[in-house]
C-alpha cells in the first residue's frame, strides 16, 4: 500500500503551506488584511500537521507532529524589510507574486488531500476519511482566500 507515501506528501505540503502563509504575513505586514488573515489561517495548516502525525502513527508511519516554523529572527527581518519598502508601488507586484504562489501551493495540498481521501475510501479507513473531511475544506478555504485577494489586488497593481 502506498498510504505512507500519500501521508508524507500531505504532511510535507501542509508544512510548506504553513511556512508560505507565515512568510506572506511577515513580508506584507503593511498590507494589514493579508498580514492578519494569512497568520490566522496558517494556524489551520499547523493543526493539520499535528492531526496528520497522530493519524499516521496509527498506521505505523512516523511523521513529526511539530509544525516546522520559521526562525523568529528571520520572521522579524522579513517584517522590518516589509515595513521599509511598504510605501513603494513595487510591493504590490511582490504581493501579487506571493499570493499567486500561496494559491498554487494550497491547490497542490488540496489535490493531495483528495488523494488521501480516495485512498481512505478504497481502504475503508473511517478514521482517515474523517480526518480528510475535517481538514480538506479548510485547505479549500485557504485556496479561495488567496484567490479572492488576487482578485482584489490585481486590478490596482496591474493598471495603475
Amino acid at each position: 500500500m502506498k498510504l505512507g507515501l500519500v501521508l508524507h506528501e500531505v504532511h510535507r505540503g501542509e508544512n510548506s503551506l504553513a511556512r508560505m502563509l507565515t512568510r506572506l504575513s511577515a513580508t506584507h505586514k503593511t498590507d494589514h488584511e493579508v498580514h492578519h488573515v494569512a497568520r490566522d489561517i496558517a494556524e489551520w495548516s499547523h493543526q493539520h500537521v499535528r492531526e496528520l502525525a497522530e493519524a499516521a502513527a496509527h498506521h505505523g508511519v512516523r511523521l513529526d507532529d511539530e509544525p516546522r516554523q520559521e526562525p523568529a529572527a528571520a520572521e522579524w527581518l522579513r517584517e522590518k524589510t516589509g515595513e521599509l519598502v511598504g510605501r513603494r508601488p513595487e510591493t504590490g507586484l511582490l504581493l501579487l507574486r506571493d499570493l499567486r504562489r500561496t494559491y498554487l501551493k494550497a491547490a497542490e495540498v488540496s489535490v493531495d488531500w483528495e488523494l488521501l481521501a480516495q485512498t481512505a475510501q478504497a481502504a475503508k479507513d473511517a478514521e482517515l476519511l474523517a480526518l480528510t473531511k475535517r481538514c480538506h475544506p479548510q485547505t479549500l478555504r485557504q485556496e479561495r482566500w488567496a484567490n479572492a485577494m488576487i482578485k482584489v489586488v490585481s486590478p490596482q497593481v496591474l493598471t495603475t
Partner: peptide
Amino acid sequence: IPHYAPPTHALQMFRYAEEGSI
C-alpha cells in the same frame, strides 16, 4: 462600471494611497 472585485473599502483605499497607486 467596475465590478471585477468587491467595491474597495476605506482602509484598502488608504493602503493604495500609502503605496502611491491612489
